[in-house]
Every structure is written in structure tokens, then in C-alpha cells.
């Protein structure tokens, strides 16, 4: 087992909802992340899958301290960094970096590529102008950008190239952990492959741990060693990538897999699809019991009252599922 670099223990991130203009009363809360425990080992890529609004982006923002957790603990190398002091925060932030979804929004339109990357370099070390330029050029080369683009502005680049700039900026901080929030979903398929290869290569080369967030199962499957499936702020199932794809133990994972379109008409016709009814419920009023039970084709009476814990399967200790029927043949078969 590799060394654990990042650990989340029962992270909850709730946003209060207020009513009233002058006297503000709390009316409820959005339970964006509701008790997530995950760990990330050195050099590991953990895929986090879920639909929009399931809290995966909030979880990412909580890890990089953009949204403070309401409860739970966050550990970096075993040290508690849930509520770091301002000095620690800087250290934590340079260690955990994020790649954002939209390469059109994550780069300041008024800065040149040089400024963008140099800004990140200068946070960690003061360098002379000459050394700084050398470092920026080196980073650009690492992500496959020609150095002659150094003085161009982000709007002069295509989506894929912009994501490369964002990756170079991330690498400039020399982080150990990268949180990638849907890094390729805004890109075309042919460009997607380039960026995925680049990220995988950099992770291997530098031994980075990565939390790879996506709604696209085929992408997650390709890059991740382990996968966690999130629904309504909770982790439904987690385990090694192959096991999850071969034998999902949670009905939601099963439905997600079956909804994933496959570019093969013959396979597409022959396979059985689970069409889930309705939309995911609102995280303001999550249903009682298992959050998935109102849409679950395998739901039973007890699902509405008990929240199943995320526990390892007896026959497969690597894989955990939060479902009362995880050993049921009807579901697993």
C-alpha cells in the first residue's frame, strides 16, 4: 500500500440558506457534501464520478480550501489541515492544486501566458527575470506548448491549448496533489485524448496523486485506478476501477454504467439499459434513508428509512458500497 497523502474523514460542506432582508433567519441548508470519507495515496489517480449537483465540485473546493467544511476532518500527510492557520494555508495551497473545468474561464484574459505561469512560479520562489523566463519556458515545454507563444493572451489559444496553460500553471506550484475538476469535458474528443495523455504522463512522471472529477465514465475509467461514485453529497460506491466496471454493487453505479453511451451500434442495441426515472432530488431536502431510493429500480421498503453505511463488501474487501442489497443476486447478477 502506498503512502496516503490526502485523507478526508466525514467531510460535510453545507451552505446555509437565509430568508429575510434585514433580520436574516436561516431557513435551511444545502447539503452539498454530506459525510465523505476518501483517501488518496501517492501516485494514485482516484476518479470521482457523479451527476451535476451531486457535490463533487464542492468537495474539490473544500479540499483546496475555497469552501470551508462544516464538519469532518481533512488530513494532508497525516497532519490535520481542516482549518489551517494563515501560514499553514499557504503551504497547504501550494501542495494541493486544482485544474478547473472551463479553460475559457480559468485564465485571466488580461494576462499573457508568461504572466499567468510566472505568477504561480513566484509564489514559491523569488527568481531573477532571466531565471523566471527560463522556468516558464521549461514548464511550457513540459505541457507541449511552443515557447514562442509565451507573450500571447489566452483568447488567442484553442480550448486544448488553454487547458495546457492551466496545467503548466498548476505544475509551477510543484504540488503533490492535483484536483482536476472536469478538466476535459469542455473539449472535443480528439483534443480530450491529448489532454488526458498529458495529465496521465505528468502524474506518472512526477508521482502526483490526482483526484479526477468527471461525469464521463469512459474518461474516468481510463485514467483512474480507483473510482468513487457520488450521489447527493454522499459516496455510494468506491473500489478499484476494474472491479467497479465489471461488477458494480450499487444500483446507482449500475444505472450510470448502463446510461453511458457506447459508440458501437451492435453493442448498443444488444445491451440492457436501466433508465432511471426523474431527476436527482434537491440537496436542500434530501430524501430520508438512502438518498437514491426514490429513483432506484431495486428499492425496498427499508431503503426509505435506513441510511446504508459505506462498508467494504465481505467478498471483495477492496470494494465498498452503500446499499442494503449489495449482496443480492438480482442486483449483482
Amino acid at each position: 500500500m502506498q503512502k496516503i497523502v490526502l485523507e478526508m474523514d466525514g467531510i460535510r460542506t453545507h451552505f446555509p440558506l437565509y430568508r429575510g432582508l434585514i433580520v436574516r433567519r436561516q431557513r435551511g441548508q444545502v447539503r452539498a457534501v454530506d459525510g465523505v470519507s476518501l483517501s488518496l495515496a501517492k501516485g494514485e489517480v482516484l476518479g470521482l464520478v457523479g451527476e451535476s449537483g451531486c457535490g463533487k465540485s464542492t468537495l474539490a473546493r473544500t479540499i483546496i480550501h475555497l469552501a470551508p467544511p462544516t464538519a469532518g476532518k481533512l488530513f494532508l500527510h497525516g497532519a490535520d489541515v481542516t482549518n489551517p492557520s494563515p501560514e499553514n494555508l499557504a503551504a497547504v495551497r501550494s501542495n494541493v492544486q486544482m485544474i478547473f473545468q472551463d479553460p475559457y474561464a480559468s485564465l485571466d484574459p488580461r494576462m499573457t501566458v508568461f504572466d499567468i505561469i510566472a505568477e504561480a512560479v513566484l509564489i514559491k520562489n523569488r527568481l531573477s527575470r532571466k531565471k523566471l523566463t527560463g522556468k516558464v519556458v521549461a514548464l511550457m515545454e513540459q505541457v507541449g506548448l511552443a515557447p514562442e507563444f509565451i507573450l500571447k493572451y489566452p483568447h488567442e489559444f484553442s480550448g486544448g491549448q488553454r487547458q495546457r496553460i492551466a496545467i503548466a500553471r498548476t505544475l509551477a506550484m510543484n504540488p503533490e496533489i492535483i484536483i482536476a475538476d472536469e478538466p476535459v469535458s469542455a473539449l472535443d474528443v480528439s483534443i480530450q485524448a491529448q489532454i488526458i495523455n498529458l495529465m496521465a504522463h505528468l502524474c506518472r512522471q512526477r508521482g502526483l496523486a490526482m483526484l479526477f472529477i468527471s461525469h464521463d465514465l469512459s474518461v474516468v475509467k481510463h485514467v483512474s485506478m480507483r473510482i468513487a461514485v457520488m450521489y447527493l453529497g454522499k459516496i455510494m460506491e468506491t473500489g478499484p476501477s476494474e472491479d467497479i466496471f465489471a461488477g458494480p454493487r450499487h444500483p446507482y453505479t449500475k444505472a450510470l454504467l448502463s446510461a453511458m453511451p457506447v459508440a458501437d451500434p451492435e453493442k448498443e442495441r444488444s445491451r440492457k439499459r436501466i433508465i432511471l426515472p426523474g431527476d436527482p432530488p434537491s440537496p436542500i431536502n434530501p430524501p430520508p434513508g438512502c438518498p437514491f431510493h426514490p429513483r432506484c429500480p431495486f428499492a425496498q421498503k427499508k431503503c426509505a428509512s435506513t441510511i446504508p453505511p459505506l462498508e467494504p463488501c465481505a467478498d471483495k474487501p477492496e470494494q465498498s458500497a452503500a446499499c442494503v442489497r449489495k449482496y443480492d443476486d438480482e442486483l449483482t447478477g
Binding site: Q97, M98, F100, Q101, D102, I123, A166, M173
Partner: peptide, 9 residues
């Protein structure tokens, strides 16, 4: 996002 990215850095 670029402001968030700056904060996160």
C-alpha cells in the same frame, strides 16, 4: 474561475 484559481494558488 481564474480568480478562484488565484485564491487556490
Amino acid at each position: 474561475e481564474y480568480i478562484e484559481a488565484a485564491v487556490a494558488m
